[in-house]
Design a protein around this nucleic acid. Structure first.
Length: 275
DNA sequence: AAGAAGTCCTGGGCGC
DNA sequence: TGCGCCCAGGACTTCT
């Protein structure tokens, strides 16, 4: 599941390949993947534009183009964006093909068809649904210990759903949220407003640490994730709780537990993360 | 207004 | 062995 470290890795690997190239043409094999504008307008407006740079905001990949346009791409669960030669055999579930000016291709594939691609004018980006309400970037200077502490105090919800709330903090998903809580030794059910300043500081440190290490590990391939060149991540080897129900905690040896919190699974160690 | 639940989607794991 | 049920989950919409 592409979360912040995975999207950052896709961004970095693709930037190397496609920056400076232009998009000659686009084939849309599954129209619903294009959120906006219409598929026809999407192809027409994209043709001839040059890739200026790649950025990331939360789990959104932003492809900055000439003509004052930005491609906004969300991979959701199983989406992949991979640079290939034109002759490479198309992966299963390939839904959109971008023909590049050097003869190679950028291909979007997605088994579960949850991912979405939009073409947005730069002026409209700050208002774009999904982007406009995103919380702070956890690795930027905007995300401070004070912000986290202040926001935790005024929320009545539990820690796990709060970390998944993209308007609270951008980029965390189920994997890194569980890993951050384990590192901070905090129970996922803990009401956010009950954290002491010391615990809030531990959570702040854990979030930044786990995301930084995730990026250094080139992301987590739990199932489907690959980077912009088709390579798997390496951080799955370093996971302490996510997907490890029944296996011993790497810190204390107690078996990792899996519970459901507001419809989502949460992995935690009952020894390290007391209620 | 905030929080919870429903929706989309398909491969894989499990039970019988 | 094989069928069918159910689960995984990010963001958006709908409900309470």
């Amino acid at each position: 599941m592409p979360e912040l470290p995975e999207v950052e890795t896709v961004k970095n690997t693709l930037a190397e390949k496609i920056t400076g190239l232009s998009i000659d043409a686009v084939d849309i094999l599954m129209p619903k993947i294009i959120r906006t504008p219409s598929p026809e307008e999407f192809c027409r407006r994209l043709a001839g534009q040059t890739v200026l740079a790649l950025d990331r905001r939360g789990k959104y990949l932003l492809v900055r183009l000439s003509g004052g346009l930005t491609l906004v791409i969300h991979l959701r669960m199983t989406g992949r964006l991979v640079y290939t030669t034109a002759t490479a055999l198309p992966a299963r579930y390939t839904h959109v093909l971008f023909h590049l000016s050097n003869g190679d291709q950028l291909r979007f594939s997605d088994m579960r068809q949850f991912g979405r691609i939009s073409l947005v004018e730069n002026d409209a980006l700050p208002l774009f649904p999904g982007l406009k309400d995103l919380g702070p970037e956890p690795l930027s200077a905007n995300f401070t210990r004070e912000y986290l502490q202040r926001e935790l105090r005024r929320r009545r919800t539990r820690l796990k759903p709060l970390l998944l709330d993209q308007t609270f903090i951008a980029g965390l998903g189920n994997i890194y949220a569980d890993e951050a809580l384990h590192r901070a030794r905090l129970h996922p059910q803990r009401p956010a407003s009950t954290l002491s300043p010391r615990e809030a500081a531990a959570l702040y440190r854990a979030i930044r640490e786990v995301l930084t290490e995730g990026i250094a590990g080139r992301g987590t391939t739990f199932r489907d994730y690959v980077d912009g060149t088709g390579r798997r991540g390496g951080f799955q080897e370093k996971l302490r709780v996510y997907g490890r129900a029944g296996q011993p905690c790497r810190q204390c040896g107690k078996p990792v537990e899996r519970i459901r919190i507001s419809g989502r699974s949460a992995y935690f160690c009952p020894g390290c993360q007391k209620q």
